[in-house]
Simulated assay, not measured.
Amino acid sequence: MSKISPCLWFDGEAEEAANFYVSLLPDSRIEKVQKNLVDGPAGKAGTVLVVDFMLAGQRFMALNGGTRFEYTHAISFFIDCADQAEVDRLWDVLSANGGSVEQCGWLKDRYGVSWQIVPAALMKYIGGPDAAGAQRAMQAMLGMVKLDIEGLRRAYEGKAVA
């Protein structure tokens, strides 16, 4: 197990968020839910304080720390997607119910956490051996909101993007 793991700060939604996140990816589960033993800034005795969970094999902690702090783009979670179906599924579920979509495969979920939903094929096109094709693929990506593998391929190959 990694010695370092991300801790996400919530204002009462830690368990809800952790359950949502573990529903998204294989090798994900709730490990432990720790309750507040006494009343304090993080909540009343008996309410959830910390949730330890695994997300795609990576350990995370969700903390009900009290006052809500907004997340920024300075920290985001990158999901390497095998294919367009995985991009589409994760994009739809993470951006639903109050989430917001952004440019170049970025979105914020309903808790304000930033995610990058990226097909593995992206690097094949923007880092491919054909420099002109890579430039076209990069320009295509910059014009996308949700990343589209077929659009990236067509741009790389110099074909009209549909």
Rank of each mutant, 00 (worst) to 15 (best):
V22W: 10
V87P: 02
G65A: 13
D80S: 14
Q34V: 15
R29H: 10
V101T: 12
L24A: 07
G57S: 09
Y111T: 01
N36I: 09
P41H: 07
R89M: 06
A74L: 12
R89V: 04
T72H: 06
R29I: 09
F20V: 12
A17L: 10
F10I: 05
G12P: 01
K44R: 08
M54W: 12
P26V: 15
D83M: 10
R59T: 05
E70R: 06
V101L: 03
V51N: 02
A42T: 10
G65E: 09
V50H: 07
G12V: 06
W91Y: 01
A14N: 04
F53G: 00
D27H: 13
A42W: 11
D52W: 07
F53A: 05
A56K: 03
G99A: 06
A18Q: 03
W106T: 08
K32G: 00
C81V: 09
A82L: 13
A85L: 08
A14K: 02
Q84P: 01
A74N: 11
A45V: 13
G12D: 08
M123P: 00
D52P: 02
L8A: 08
D27Q: 15
D92N: 10
F10M: 05
G57R: 02
A96I: 13
V87Q: 08
A85P: 00
T47L: 07
I117Q: 04
G99L: 14
G65T: 04
V113M: 15
D88I: 12
G43F: 13
L63S: 04
F60C: 06
G112H: 05
D27G: 04
L37C: 02
G57Q: 00
T67S: 10
R68V: 12
E70A: 15
S95W: 11
G12I: 14
K32I: 11
L122V: 14
D52V: 05
E13F: 13
D83Y: 11
G99R: 03
L24R: 00
A85C: 01
V51I: 05
P119W: 14
R59P: 01
N36K: 02
V87N: 02
D52A: 13
A74P: 01
C81S: 07
Q116D: 07
A17H: 05
Y21D: 10
S28H: 07
G65D: 08
V113A: 03
P26D: 14
H73L: 12
M123Q: 11
